[in-house]
Amino acid sequence: MSAIIAMSGVRKTYATGAIAVEALRGVDVRISEGEYVAIIGPSGSGKSTLMHILGCLDVPTEGHYSLAGRDVSDLEEAELAQIRNREIGFVFQQFNLLPDLTALRNVALPLVYAGVAAAERERRARVALERVGLADRADHRPGELSGGQQQRVAVARALVTEPSMILADEPTGNLDSVSSADVLGLFRELHVAGRTIVLITHENEIAAQAGRVLTIRDGEISENGVVEAGVRG
């Protein structure tokens, strides 16, 4: 299988005043198409920075990052926005749905920025909502949905552009255990259907869902290979 994500020697340094903080110190990651990968690490490990670079929300200070065959290491903001739109489906801890829009319009939002026509947007958004089992909630606003349902809507939004990878940042962080299991079940289904999923978490039990676990600590990554090896700290 070809590598969807190929990072080599990625460094990220934040300059705060006189002190330079090195959040990533030469990270190499390869993720193949259809893989379900968890990235686990305690807070302050560089986990968020890695997620931002993986998600093209930020660019590395040094090193190369190629996503779906394209080097995205030093693109302009407008080009990165396009890459995010086409290649990445985000799922956030806070769901980040727009409260004034219906579930359907929330799901269709990335298609608006992709320049898809209205009728086609609605059709694809309905398909995505159906995929997460919320076709009957299309006209509800986020406030009228449970947390688990909101996160399902967010997953539908991540799916709607048919991205190369779904990037989930602590997707169960705000959910009770039943909803968490529900959402993780959905990810598993998507993985079985051939989706590439990158899940960022600090919980071992969540990471255990993935086929491969990468541990990040002090800005460096190590491969556990098998989940059973566990994570220290």
Partner: peptide, 16 residues
């Protein structure tokens, strides 16, 4: 700010 951030994450360019 959050709405703007979300729209950008979903692919809104600065000019959009």
């Amino acid at each position: 700010v959050r709405e703007i951030g979300l729209r950008k994450a979903l692919g809104a360019t600065p000019s959009a």
